[in-house]
Design a binder for these strands. Structure first.
Lengths: 340, 340
DNA sequence: TTGAAAGCGGTACCAA
DNA sequence: TTGGTACCGCTTTCAA
C-alpha cells in the first residue's frame, strides 16, 4: 500500500492525503480523520526511502564503530550505549545505522556515509586524544556528537563523556585509604582519550599523598583478556607485587582474575581489584562489598543523552556545540543494584 | 556531487555514466575508464536512498532487538554477533539497521520495517520456543534468518544456532566426572529456546548417570546480576548447598560470584562455576584452569555465518530454508585464547 | 554504444 | 481547503 493507492482509495489527491497524515493545518478536520482512519486500517506506512529522497532527511543516525584489525571485538559497553541511544531515537522516529569499520579506513567511512546520504548525523565512538574525525566531520557539515572527548582538539565540538579522571582518582584514593601502597594500573591504549584521562586521575591521587606512580606497575595496551592475564602474571611474580589492581575494562579484568587465581591468591583476601565498566570488585582489608566505577545502567543513560544532544543539533543546524560531563557512579560499600 | 553533475562534467548522459559505474557490458572500455576515474577523483558516491527507491532494494539488513521492559539491557553477546555480521555485510555493500523494540510491540516493528521498506531482510534475535515472528515474517515475504531456533515451530525456516543442549550436557558430564553430585542450574527464562535446550542437556547428562535433577537447585529467570546473586545466596544457605554452578550468562555469573564471595567461600576451592557466553570458569578439585562454553569469538563467527545465509537467501528469493548448528567451543583444561 | 524519458514514492510549491 | 505538478537522484526501457 503506497500513497497513490491510498489516495485513489479515498478519492483524494496524494497531496491532500500527505498533508492530512503529516499534520498540516490547511486540511479540514473531517478529511484528516477519514484519511488517518483509512491509513491505519489499510496498514499504510510511508516509504522511508522515498520520503528521505523528497525531504533530504534520512531520519537515520550513524554509529561508526572502529574495529581494530588485531582483535576485532566490540567494546562490551557499546551494547548498553546503543540501547540507550536507540530508545531516544525511536521516540523521535529515527533509525540507527551501524557501520563497522577497520580503523585504517575510518575517514573514508565517514566521507562515504555522508556522500551516499545515508545518515542525518553521527555519533563518534572511541575518540583519540587528537582525532582527525572531528575536523573531518566539521568540514563535511555533518552534525555529530562525540561519545568521549579529544583532549587535543582545539576547536569546540559537542561531546558527552564520563568523568574518567575523577573516577580513577576516587578509586585510587579509596585504595590508598585502605592502606594500599602498591597499586597497579592496567589501562587501555593511552592514545585513546579515556585511557589518558584515567591515568591522569590515578597519578593525581597518588601525587596528592606525596606518592609517585611506579612505572613497573603501569601497563597500557588494547584491552583484551590476554593482556590482563600477562600483565597481572608478570607483576605478581615480581619482587614487589602489587596489592591492588585498578583495571580499565571488564574483559581485561577477566584475565587478571585468572592470573591471581593461578598464582594461588584469592581476590578480596590477598589482592584487591577494582574495574571500570561494571564488574564485580574484590577488596582486601575486610571489604567484601562490590565496587564499580561506571555501571552498565549509567552507560545506557549516556547513550540516551548523547542521542538527545545529536537530535537537538540536527533540528537546529545553527546550534552551538554542547558538552556534558557525567560523573561515574562509583559505588563503594553499597549494593550493585536496586532492591537487593 | 550527484549523477547529474558528474555526467554534465563528463559531457555524457546520466544513463551512460550509470551504466559505466555499475558494470554494464554495453559501454565502451574507453568511456568506462574515463567515467570511473572522474567518479573517484570527484568523490562521487551514489545516493543510497535514490538508488533503493529506483531499484526496490535497500541494501540494508534489520536486526531487531527485543528489549524487555523490566531491565532494558542488551544481551552482551549481541555486540560480538553484530561485529561478525557487520563484517560480512560490508563486504557485500550492505548496511545494518538496528531496531530496538519493547517486546510487547515487536510484531508491529516487523510490519512497519517491511511496510516502510527500510530493509531487505531481517535477523531474528532471541527466539522463543513458539515464536509468532516466524510465521509473521513468512507471511510478509521478508527474507529472514533466526539466530537460535524455535523448537515448536512446525514449518521449515532458516536458522543458525549454537548447540546449547550439547554444551550444557558436556559441561554437566565434566562436573560429574569431577565428583560433583549437587550441581545447580542457573538458567535464563525457559520459554526462550536456548534456555529450554540448555536445561534438556543438563537433565540428560544427569539421567544418563542415573541421577535426577533436584528442583531446589534449578532456577530460571531473566539473566540479570541480581537474579544470580539471589539464587546463589539462597542455595548456598540451604541444608544441602550445591558444590557447582552451571550458569547461562556472564552477567548472572557476576551475581553468583558475589554471593559465593559473601558466603566466605572461594571459587575454585569450595565451589565450581561454569558459565556460558564466555566467562572465566572456576573449578574445584585441583582444576584451576579456565573453562568456557561458547567463546566470544565463536559468537562472532556465528554472526558472520548468519549474515552470509541471509544474503544468500536475499539473492535467491526462491531459496529453500537452510540451517546450521554450531558446536560450542567447550574449552576444558585449555587456555583462554591464542598463544598464551 | 549512447541518450531521452518514464518511473520509484513521496513532498511542497503554486494555482484554483 | 483541495489538487496539479515539478522535483529529490537514481535505474531501466526504448529508440536512435
Amino acid at each position: 500500500m503506497n500513497l497513490k493507492q491510498l489516495s485513489e482509495h479515498l478519492g483524494l489527491s496524494q497531496t491532500t492525503v500527505s498533508r492530512a497524515l503529516n499534520g498540516y493545518p490547511e486540511v479540514s478536520e473531517k478529511t484528516r480523520l477519514r484519511v488517518q482512519q483509512a491509513a491505519r486500517q489499510l496498514n499504510y506506512s510511508p516509504n522511508t526511502r522515498a520520503k528521505s529522497l523528497a525531504t533530504g532527511r534520512t531520519h537515520a543516525i550513524g554509529h561508526v564503530l572502529p574495529i581494530s584489525a588485531s582483535h576485532e571485538m566490540v567494546n562490551p559497553v557499546f551494547g548498553d550505549f546503543i540501547a540507550g541511544a536507540g530508545a531516544t531515537y525511536s521516540d523521535h522516529g529515527y533509525e540507527i545505522v551501524i557501520s563497522l569499520v577497520k580503523d585504517q579506513d575510518e575517514a573514508e567511512a565517514y566521507r562515504s556515509l555522508h556522500a551516499r546520504g545515508s545518515v542525518d548525523g553521527i555519533i563518534v565512538h572511541g575518540p583519540r586524544m587528537r582525532d582527525p574525525r572531528i575536523p573531518l566531520l566539521r568540514e563535511l557539515g555533518l552534525p555529530f556528537v562525540v561519545h568521549g572527548r579529544a583532549s587535543d582538539e582545539p576547536d569546540p565540538y559537542s561531546w558527552l563523556d564520563i568523568n574518567n579522571q575523577r573516577a580513577f582518582e576516587r578509586a585510587t584514593e579509596f585504595l590508598l585509604d585502605l592502606g594500599h601502597r602498591r597499586i597497579a594500573l592496567v589501562n587501555g591504549l593511552e592514545f585513546m582519550d579515556f585511557a589518558y584521562r584515567r591515568r591522569l586521575g590515578f597519578e593525581k591521587a597518588l601525587s596528592e599523598r606525596g606518592l609517585r606512580a611506579d612505572p613497573a606497575l603501569m601497563r597500557s595496551e588494547e584491552m583484551t583478556e590476554i593482556f590482563g592475564y600477562r600483565s597481572a602474571r608478570e607483576m605478581l611474580a615480581s619482587d614487589q607485587p602489587p596489592t591492588a589492581f585498578l583495571v580499565s575494562s571488564m574483559i581485561t579484568a577477566i584475565g587478571i582474575r585468572r592470573a591471581i587465581h593461578e598464582a594461588g591468591l584469592e581476590m578480596g583476601r590477598d589482592v584487591s581489584v577494582i574495574t571500570h565498566d561494571d564488574d564485580l570488585g574484590y577488596l582486601k582489608n575486610g571489604h567484601s562489598v562490590p565496587i564499580f566505577t561506571a555501571t552498565r545502567s549509567s552507560v545506557r543513560v549516556a547513550g540516551e543523552r548523547a542521542a538527545a544532544m545529536l537530535l537537538d543539533c540536527i533540528r537546529d543546524p545553527g546550534c552551538v556545540p554542547k558538552t556534558q560531563l557525567m560523573e561515574a557512579e562509583l559505588i563503594i560499600g553499597a549494593s550493585t543494584g536496586p532492591a537487593l
